[in-house]
Amino acid sequence: MTKTSHVLVLAIAFGLALQNARAAPPQQPRPEIFTDLLKCRDIAMDSQRLACFDRQVADMQAASDRDEVVILDKAELHKTRRTLFGFSFPKLPFLDGDDDAKKEEEGFSRIQTTIASVKNLGYGKWQIQLEDGAQWMTTEPIIRRTPKAGMTIEIRRASMGSFMGKIEDDRAVRMKRVG
């Protein structure tokens, strides 16, 4: 084989590997307690299948009571994402979901809420508590209007991991999540 043939074979092999990697995205492994529950469906005899389901559901309930298993529906997941908006975390598989849903979710790229309280930090900077308890701080001064409890605020993701906050009709200022 010539050097050109080796390069061609390597390129084809790489292309096939890349295509296979795109075609089948890796799935998150499911907890054993859940897969054991699913295995009960494969039992043919009704009484044994029911006994298996009863046993596995009892195990799952006990694990849930010990906080070893947490079950979230989409609404609860959305609420959790919204609560954590503004914090930097490593990629957590249980918060990911599919990319299209994340792009569409209002709570993922921006939040719009009401200011619960404000604290003057001096030099035109403010610490702002939102109605859900989240604490944000302006990193540049607010010049035109003093923020007050009851005003609406919209905080959105900006470039390079930063956030911009706009209080009512004032100009947007850089902000960071502090609590």
Rank of each mutant, 00 (worst) to 15 (best):
M1D: 12
M1V: 09
K3W: 01
L8P: 00
L8D: 14
L10P: 12
L10I: 07
I12M: 06
G15L: 10
G15T: 05
L16R: 05
A17H: 12
A17I: 01
Q19R: 06
R22H: 00
R22E: 01
A23G: 14
A24M: 07
A24L: 15
Q28L: 13
Q28D: 04
P29Q: 01
P31L: 00
P31F: 04
P31I: 00
D36V: 03
D36K: 00
L37Q: 02
L38H: 02
K39L: 04
K39S: 02
C40Y: 05
C40M: 06
R41L: 12
I43C: 14
I43R: 09
M45R: 02
S47F: 02
A51S: 13
A51E: 11
C52K: 12
F53S: 02
F53Y: 14
R55H: 08
Q56G: 00
A58S: 13
A58R: 10
D59C: 07
M60L: 10
M60V: 05
Q61V: 09
A62C: 05
A63V: 11
S64Y: 12
D65L: 08
D67H: 15
E68P: 06
V69C: 07
V70P: 15
I71H: 11
I71A: 14
K74N: 12
E76T: 12
L77R: 09
H78V: 04
H78Y: 15
K79T: 08
T80M: 10
T80Q: 13
R82P: 00
T83Y: 15
T83F: 15
L84M: 14
F85P: 05
F87H: 12
S88E: 14
L92N: 05
P93Y: 14
P93M: 10
P93F: 14
L95F: 04
G97M: 01
G97Y: 00
D99P: 04
D99N: 06
D100N: 13
D100F: 15
D100L: 12
A101D: 08
K102L: 11
K102N: 07
E105N: 03
E105Y: 04
E106I: 09
E106L: 14
G107E: 10
G107R: 14
S109I: 00
R110F: 12
R110N: 09
Q112N: 11
I115D: 00
I115E: 02
V118P: 01
N120R: 07
L121Q: 12
G122L: 15
G122E: 11
G122Q: 13
Y123H: 06
K125D: 01
W126C: 03
Q127H: 03
Q127V: 03
Q129R: 07
Q129S: 06
L130V: 07
Q135E: 07
M137A: 14
T138I: 10
T138P: 02
T139K: 10
E140Y: 00
E140Q: 10
E140S: 08
P141S: 13
P141H: 08
P141V: 10
R144Q: 04
R144W: 00
T146N: 04
T146R: 01
K148E: 08
K148W: 06
G150W: 15
M151W: 00
I153D: 03
E154S: 12
I155Q: 09
I155V: 13
R156H: 14
M160D: 08
M160R: 13
M160H: 15
M160V: 04
S162P: 00
F163D: 01
G165R: 03
G165T: 06
G165I: 03
I167C: 04
I167K: 05
E168W: 15
D169Y: 07
D169L: 05
A172P: 11
R174L: 03
R174A: 04
R177H: 13
